[in-house]
């Protein structure tokens, strides 16, 4: 009984520790400015959507959000287009040097991707894609692509090769068999990893801030605007950064857990 109560108490403390900052920033973003600056008022008497609205409408937040979505979309697209064949070969073929290739791709994950921003800027100026969303997307792809290769190869590897071989025996080519037999089976897992890839790009701030001036993604926009904006806009910005990511996590939590190798049974 005591043990049970203690467990519950610890669980509540942990939940409190992780949830409080999230609850507070959402609350702050909804607090009227007068009440925020009133030191004697801890909880606001009324809530307002004004900060969020002006961040979106007058401070360019909406455009930055669309930019972020485009950047993430392009890098996910390229990553899967380039990454799936490699992931397929890693799981379905046996060949010399396979482990070295896998290790090399794994090692790029330990590469500090943020440093590529500076040299890429000079390159982009030369080839005329500086301050474009495509430029940011390509930079983000170098971070997302190795992730997609590794995670997809583990997802595809989780589907027995015999399903695909059965497809080939019963009349499909290798490619058709992958698309029509294996693809439907791996699609949920790939979708979950695409969502995670989306969050990687959505959250990346350093490279995006360096590569763009006019076409800023949301975090890059916030990074620059936050320095000068009043506090309540910062909270509104923090909230719109956090909410989509949290919604994604919520809807894909089961798949994400299995991607991380956590069993829920």
């Amino acid at each position: 009984m005591i043990k049970k109560a203690l467990t519950l108490l610890i669980a509540i403390l942990i939940a409190f520790w992780f949830l409080t900052p999230i609850v507070l920033i959402v609350l702050s973003s909804l607090t009227p400015s007068a009440e925020y600056y009133d030191p004697h008022r801890i909880l606001p008497r009324s809530l307002t959507l004004n900060h969020l609205r002006s961040l979106f409408v007058t401070l360019g937040g909406w455009r930055a959000t669309l930019n972020s979505i485009q950047v993430a979309g392009i890098s996910i697209g390229i990553s899967f287009l380039f990454g799936l064949p490699a992931a397929y070969a890693l799981t379905r073929f046996v060949f010399r040097g396979k482990n070295s290739i896998r290790l090399a791709i794994l090692l790029t994950r330990s590469f500090p991707v943020l440093i590529i921003g500076i040299p890429l800027l000079t390159l982009y100026m030369r080839i005329g894609i500086s301050d474009t969303l495509l430029g940011v997307a390509l930079a983000h792809t170098s971070m997302v692509l190795p992730f997609v290769v590794l995670i997809s190869s583990s997802i595809i590897g989780g589907i027995s090769v015999e399903y695909e071989e059965a497809g080939m025996i019963f009349g499909l080519s290798r490619f058709a068999s992958f698309m029509r037999i294996t693809m439907p089976l791996v699609l949920p897992g790939l979708a979950a990893s695409a969502i995670f890839a989306f969050i990687m790009s959505w959250n990346e701030v350093f490279v995006a801030a360096i590569l763009t001036v006019g076409n800023r993604t949301l975090p890059a926009h916030i990074l620059n605007a936050a320095m000068t904006a009043p506090d309540y806009f910062k909270f509104a910005a923090g909230t719109i950064m956090a909410v989509p990511a949290m919604i994604f996590i919520f809807f894909t939590r089961k798949y994400l857990m299995s991607l991380w190798g956590i069993s829920l049974k």
Binding site: N203, L223, M241, A245, R253, L264
Partner: peptide
């Protein structure tokens, strides 16, 4: 425990930018 597991995993999706701003609100 599953419920708590999901709560703990929320910050995984949060960027350093929003984490910083959360801290700032506190």
């Amino acid at each position: 425990y599953l419920f708590l597991l999901y709560i703990i995993s929320i910050p995984l999706a949060l960027s350093d930018v929003s984490a910083a701003l959360m801290s700032y609100s506190i």
